[in-house]
Simulated scan of single mutants.
Amino acid sequence: MSASDNSSANNKAATAHLEDIQGESPEVFQSRYEYYTQYPNKWSRWREYIREPAAEMLGTMTLILFGTGVDCQVVLSTKTGVAASPKGDYLSLNFGWACGAALGVWVSGGISGGHINPAVTLALAVYRKFPWRKVPGYMLGQLIGAWIAALIVFANYFHAIDIFEGGKGVRTLSTASLFATYSLAYMPAANCFFDEFIGAFILLLVVFAVSDRRNGPPPPGLVPLVIFIVILGIGAAFGMQTGYAINPARDLGPRLMTAMVGYGHQVFNYRSQYWLWTPILGSFAGALVAPLVYDVFIFNGDESFINRPSVSARRHFAHARHAERPMAPAGFEPDHAV
């Protein structure tokens, strides 16, 4: 047989179906055998491209559903026209946001790592080699999830908002604050920024600590419980003055929603673009400083640029030890393709 004949036979065998090779009809083959395919249909192949950003979207949506939902229930119920008696207090607010954060991480943790916060995503890219190509998709997913959740909560409570505001369609910052964050009147600009900086600093310090394999991390799957505790603690200790956004998507998504449903430009013009320099820049600043402090004083893994070998060490091919979990902060092991 010639080389060309051999090549033709090999190509034909490679393209033949398994049932054809075994001499069985597709019906008989299907009744006798079962096999796994990663893409059983067209949608499953497309889903692979958006799965991680979609997980971030659903996780952040869960966070905002619980958070803005508890804000609306507690505050709106103080009006007797809305409810016969108040349905919660400041502690209820803290528990609602903590539950939302923990459950949001649980929803998305095994797929995307459960960041549900652009500040966490940026910090992991800077300090833990999280792929930069994924950062835009994650942040967009987080923002969209926050916007969708805020819109759902508004649709659920808009009748109560009308009663609270004193008229149908009346929209002021008193109810806009149920969705985005606003500071107390006595707070100077620098103190507002610092308040959000502190909250984000604490959050990221804990996130990087629990994802450090050499620092007594909780078992995989229990990191959402740690997130619950830290969010509850931040709210109880630092939530009064600026509303502890500590998450740019948590503030910007609902703020965009309020601007679109009747609140207008006032939500962005408040205190000379407060929305930018406090919940966004303050959160990002705290989120970038906390890992730097942690890495300088504690972390010794090779993921951080702080532990990059010196020139003399590189001459001997030295490197730091690998220590970080691959899916921080949620603590789940990543899926492996079959």
Rank of each mutant, 00 (worst) to 15 (best):
L140Y: 12
F238Q: 10
R133T: 14
V289M: 01
L178Y: 13
E303A: 07
F208S: 06
A149T: 01
A236R: 08
I163D: 04
S183I: 10
Y244R: 08
R45T: 05
E196K: 02
G233C: 15
A101K: 14
I231R: 07
G239W: 02
Q273Y: 15
V230H: 06
L143E: 07
W46C: 06
F66T: 08
E52N: 05
I144M: 04
R255T: 08
W277E: 03
A146H: 08
T78A: 02
G282L: 06
G233E: 14
N191A: 12
R325A: 14
I163G: 02
G137C: 11
T242K: 00
Y127G: 05
S310D: 07
R171C: 08
S25P: 11
Y157K: 03
W97F: 15
D89S: 14
S7K: 14
C99I: 12
A125Q: 01
H115Q: 11
S112T: 10
A337N: 13
L232N: 10
Y244V: 07
W277G: 06
S31V: 12
F317P: 08
P118E: 00
R51K: 13
E27R: 12
F317S: 14
F201A: 02
A84E: 10
T258V: 04
Y90K: 15
E324G: 07
A146E: 08
I227R: 07
D212C: 03
F95R: 08
T121M: 00
V70K: 03
G239A: 04
S2W: 13
D5G: 09
V230D: 06
R255V: 04
K42H: 10
L203R: 06
T62L: 03
T78C: 00
S112D: 09
A185I: 01
Y35E: 15
A13T: 06
F154W: 02
I21W: 05
D302F: 05
W46A: 09
I116D: 00
Y49L: 07
Q241D: 06
S211F: 10
I50P: 08
P26W: 02
G113H: 02
R314A: 12
H316S: 13
